[in-house]
Design a protein around this nucleic acid. Structure first.
Lengths: 350, 350
DNA sequence: TCGATTTGGTAAAACGTTACACCAAATCAA
DNA sequence: TTGATTTGGTGTAACGTTTTACCAAATCGA
């Protein structure tokens, strides 16, 4: 078995030109005798020929790879998301090149440019920073972008699609659930807040409080500055723990906490235990995402579900439709409803 | 800004031939005037040139991509591992193409062949199936493989390197810890057992029992057949829960459980609670991996730590050394010691 | 029968880069 | 001064594929 089997080898074996082999491989076999087609297919199988993607890419200018940039697959939410993206993409004939950015714009653009060099012309992107102008150059060259963690912003121009949940509503659902249980002192626990999705969640939290005639109290809001370009995606549990300890050490501590995502909520579990409190009897906790383990931890976590698989599926389908020229409409913006999942981490305050 | 900037554009702008630009880019600039080098670097920056990787790959026969095949990044162990692999690989100038295989050999070989088509010549591989002969064809063509979840097997031939922990010892540590607490009825909880690492762990469990003069009881061992080529990597928590319920429903149930990994252990937590038992007072539980959350769940999980970051680093370094011809020795096999981490999920039996 | 159309192919240029062979001019050493 | 060596480049073939233009033979229709 030779190291290299090229289209020329196949052609020679089948007794046709290499153009004929290429025609068969690329859907131009209408003008081909069945016997010719058969000979070629047999030669392909016998020789174990697979096309050299680099040669394809060089000629066509693009490759069957899409890029996926997430903050960190070490966070289960993104690991699960990446898994679904890959699954859908493979069914559509695309490989996925994954990048972990920790929401650092410099890393994001470096990835995007490297991916461009590999012929990647479509990118699924989830960091929810405000400004994606670092992608403008690549977008103007033809890069297609689908953002999944934040709705498209005005500043994005007309060339970024998005799929995601209504983060404002997610936070409203969580906060209203706590209010309906009778909580008046509701903490908001977050990592660095300067991302679109997190600010939308803060806004939803505050709007639900306002609706209930409660003034938002800064002492009930915990977030930290980004440290070394880290938004807390890789150390969410530790941050959640620390933030909960600090909230509970304040003068008029919360009786409930809305955590920015499930990993922060798990950290809140630990923080509360560290402070000698029981969940939910002393402190109710709500998260966002509904990742694996929310049902298993004790008490099981009340959370707001993101339909991860559906978001991934929609993002991939949108991107591939753009790449294959099957979707030429203006910027597309799909918002899915979040869903409150009440489990055992919330109860009435004492 | 034009869509395409090629080496020819850079050469024209710098007033040199394209060979000169290539020489600079590829470390052959000894014979170059500093002023020529400067002109070229300025042209590269002004034009925003990045090399077309497909063209490079076509000419060189390889690309700066390594493949990583794991069962599923939806499982945090592999998500964390993938994250570390990427981090190290990027520092060495390589991108990572990730594939999720669910340990299905057909999927594994399909991935490997597709990766080959993208110029991937090195693969980090973690599924711990016995037989990797499906890679033989690619290996004989020059593919380098580093396995990270199982030691190299006889049948692998001489061309598969490996990095990982001593799984036999990991299980011995866990089981001896439980024995030292006084447990005599120790369950073994696993998904489908026909992988090298899982059988090694079973063997370690059984050997520790033998050392303590205890006969291994089949009624204390729970595993299931692979279903639809699934080894339980994506649904470990559910399987762990189910398996624990079944073990606890038997005639002479265990007072302690050694779970094949932490996700199964978390499932065991749920299963025990389902059966009305308290952990650890009614049932002690030990896992393997020490993933994120083992310290946070309550009770915090006693587990056997895999040094994930170190394994990832060693695997990448070995693979890159092979790819760059800096390591020509025979098959390399690095075993790292596991470490027992005692937390709160284990105590003496009632 | 003859011109138009269809069938079933083929040849060749191009994609962007690498690396080898080569060259002219300058420098060095005898 | 002459031959050898070094410097600082350059030209070009090749990588494997795609796609376009083209062609000869067969078929069709008047």
């Amino acid at each position: 078995m030779s190291n290299k089997v090229t289209i020329t080898d196949v052609a020679r074996k089948a007794g046709v030109s290499l153009s004929t082999v290429s025609n068969l491989l690329n859907g131009r076999s209408k003008r081909m005798r069945p016997s010719t087609e058969q000979r070629i297919l047999e030669a392909i199988e016998e020789l174990g020929y697979t096309p050299n993607q680099a040669a394809r890419q060089l000629k066509t200018g693009q490759s069957a790879i899409i890029g996926l940039i997430v903050p960190s697959v070490a966070n289960p939410f993104y690991g699960i998301f990446a898994r679904h993206v890959e699954s859908v993409a493979l069914k559509l004939g695309y490989q996925v090149l994954l990048g972990n950015s920790d929401r650092d714009p410099a890393r994001e653009i470096k990835y995007a440019e490297e991916l461009w060099g590999y012929g990647v012309r479509g990118l699924i992107f989830g960091s929810s920073l405000f400004n994606v102008s670092h992608f403008d150059n690549l977008i103007s060259r033809g890069l297609h972008v689908v953002a999944f963690e934040r709705p498209t912003q005005e500043a994005d121009g007309t060339r970024v699609d998005s799929v995601g949940i209504d983060n404002h509503l997610a936070a409203r659902l969580a906060t209203k659930h706590l209010l309906s249980l009778g909580h008046k002192r509701i903490g908001f626990l977050s990592g660095p807040i300067q991302t679109v999705s997190r600010l939308d969640r803060l806004s939803g939290y505050q709007s639900a409080l306002r609706d209930a005639g409660i003034q938002s109290d800064p002492d009930l809001i915990w977030d930290v500055s980004p440290s070394e370009n880290s938004y807390g995606d890789a150390d969410a549990v530790d941050l959640g723990r620390q933030g909960t300890q600090e909230l509970l050490s304040r003068l008029d501590p919360p009786t409930a906490i809305f955590a920015i995502n499930d990993m922060f909520a798990f950290g809140a579990y630990a923080g509360a235990k560290d402070m000698g409190l029981q969940i939910p009897s002393d402190l109710s906790i709500v998260g966002v995402d509904d990742i694996t383990l929310t049902e298993i931890v004790r008490p099981s976590l009340t959370t707001v579900r993101q339909p991860i698989e559906k978001i991934a599926t929609m993002a991939v389908n949108r991107l591939v439709a753009r790449l294959e020229g099957k979707f030429d409409e203006q910027q597309d913006h799909q918002i899915l409803p979040p869903q409150l999942i009440v489990r055992s981490s919330t109860t009435r305050p004492k």
